[in-house]
């Protein structure tokens, strides 16, 4: 199976505190991988390593290698902007820009110098269709994105990430602020998106991890305790700590 990221001996420190300990993991292309674990276990920290979002945090020190297509993304010559176009991100709370739906989608491509109106229109339609939002908003593309519901805003954020034609979409608890119907739409969307993208999702919902992901990694205190097919993790985990966590007996 093709890998998207090969992570070896990754250690991360916030000042003196070590947040990730010797992480070794291969993440697979066109698969959904879920990171689960209790709060503060390092799963979001690790997710942010994959597009170097931790670079923005003062005092954050990273050792080890994260190879994307064979190249270490932490090499000094890596173009971080280029990396983040390939590795898009969707956050916990929907964060559309305070502008129209249309402008939200074309913001990234425009920043990259695309000006052709017909091209931009095509990107808007394709991205919104892929994010399963087109039917709901195609007749009000120039209205404010802030007028959309929470679930629609989150799908808009996914469409905005897709507009940059990334290879990977990182999702940090993308449905924790949404109701069950909006959550189910995002989960359906993840299922269809994996045909074209690699998706890595941090979630606190065990059911969500088991429903949407192909692979699951269980994090605890900065370590990856267990990483396997989701069907194995949720039916017959090898490590007692994984078992205790997913069955709610942790601690």
């Amino acid at each position: 199976m093709d890998t998207c990221f090969n992570v070896t001996d990754l250690n991360l420190y916030y000042g003196e505190k070590q947040a990730l300990k010797n992480i070794n993991i291969d993440l697979y292309k066109n698969k959904v991988t879920a990171f689960i674990g209790p709060s503060g276990c390092g799963k979001s920290t690790f997710l942010r390593c994959l597009n170097r979002m931790n670079d923005l945090i003062e005092g954050c020190k990273i050792e080890g290698n994260i190879l994307k297509d064979g190249i270490n993304i932490y090499e000094t010559k890596t173009d971080v902007v280029e990396l983040r176009t390939k590795v898009g991100m969707v956050f916990q709370k929907p964060n559309p820009f305070p502008m129209s739906i249309y402008e939200n989608i074309v913001y990234g491509p425009k920043c990259h110098g695309l000006k052709n109106k017909a091209e931009l229109n095509k990107i808007v339609e394709k991205s919104l269709k892929q994010a399963a939002l087109w039917d709901e908003v195609h007749d009000r593309l120039h209205e404010s994105a802030l007028g959309l519901s929470g679930g629609q805003q989150q799908r808009l954020c996914i469409a905005r990430a897709i507009a940059m034609q990334p290879e990977v979409i990182l999702m940090d608890e993308p449905t924790s602020a949404l109701d069950p119907i909006a959550t189910s739409k995002i989960e359906e969307l993840i299922e269809t998106l994996k045909n074209d993208y690699t998706i890595i999702i941090v979630t606190h919902s065990m059911q969500q991890a088991s429903r949407v992901s192909d692979y699951t990694a269980f994090f605890l205190l900065g370590d990856i305790i267990e990483y396997d097919k989701t069907s194995v993790i949720f039916q017959n985990p090898k490590d007692k700590r994984t078992e205790d966590y997913i069955t709610g007996r942790f601690g």
Partner: peptide
């Protein structure tokens, strides 16, 4: 929603 040994 039992999982792992609970489910089994």
């Amino acid at each position: 929603s039992p999982v792992a040994s609970d489910l089994r």
